[in-house]
């Protein structure tokens, strides 16, 4: 069975416009539409099998984070189907789901509650989250005083402990130090072996080869290519440095 099925997903954003009364009258006077539409995701279809590790790659602004937000329900698509079979733990961009004013410990409890863990279960996983994140000394410090690496540690540690079947990881490891990254990649392999479904967005391609089975290349909101990880990454890497038009399939 497939863990994630996405069919013909399309998402338009309204480009930020001048929302003031002045801006309104100016745009009325100029007779331009006040909403400039921008296609962030265009007819995206793919599916991820249960227990598979899937990479999504693409340039800045390709729509990877947007795709993750749609998958986790944060933004709703304009059209298309999204089917998630299993509990989803999204780790979207830095500081995923952490509340600035709360301490690390409170954030752990908050996030566990968001993911529907019972009080007893929260008590069970609390220690292992702290242990994995290696933040024992800072656990009672408000998260606003955390470094970005510390936030990503906490976010990652929470996401892997909330009993989710599908974990979406977007770029959170980019700021982790070498040891923590290594630990995370090992953990991700472990999770894969346990049969969890991982979807990873990353600009550091090397580790992806080790963790992922398949990959999707996103370009300007459209699916450019889907295939085995090595195949896609080879293509992506070969076209990246040269700025020639090597856009043959």
């Amino acid at each position: 069975m497939d863990a994630i099925v996405v069919e013909n997903l399309t998402k338009h954003f309204r480009k930020a416009y001048d929302k003031t009364l002045k801006g309104f009258f100016i745009s009325v006077a100029k007779r331009e539409s006040r909403y400039e539409e921008f296609v962030a995701l265009n007819n995206v279809s793919f599916s991820v099998k249960k227990g598979e590790s899937y990479a999504i790659i693409g340039k800045n602004g390709a729509g990877k984070s947007t795709l993750f937000k749609v998958l986790s329900g944060i933004i709703s698509p304009d059209s298309g189907e999204v089917q998630m079979n299993g509990k989803v733990a999204p780790l979207i961009e830095l500081g995923a789901g952490l509340s600035r004013d709360l301490t690390g410990a409170e954030n752990i409890r908050l996030n566990c509650a968001i993911f529907g863990l019972s009080k007893a279960r929260i008590r069970d996983v609390y220690d292992s989250i702290v242990e994995f994140s290696e933040l024992e000394d800072f656990i009672d410090t408000p998260v606003k005083f955390y470094s970005s690496g510390m936030k990503s540690r906490l976010g990652f540690a929470i996401a892997i402990h909330v009993d989710a079947e599908i974990i979406l990881i977007d770029e959170v490891l980019a700021v982790g130090d070498k040891d923590f990254k290594k630990k995370c990649y090992t953990k991700m392999e472990e999770l894969r072996n346990e049969g969890k479904t991982l979807v990873v967005v990353s600009h550091s391609l090397k580790p992806l080869r080790r963790i992922c089975d398949r990959a999707l290349l996103l370009e300007k909101g459209e699916v450019k290519d889907i295939g085995s990880i090595d195949e896609i990454l080879d293509k992506y890497e070969s076209e990246k440095p040269k700025k020639k038009k090597t856009k043959g399939a």
């Binding site: 986790s72 329900g73 944060i74 999204p90 979207i92 789901g97 509340s99 968001i114």
Partner: peptide, 11 residues
């Protein structure tokens, strides 16, 4: 006032 939560997780 809860931007960081709303933008990153859904409930």
């Amino acid at each position: 006032g809860n931007v960081s939560l709303i933008k990153k997780v859904y409930f």
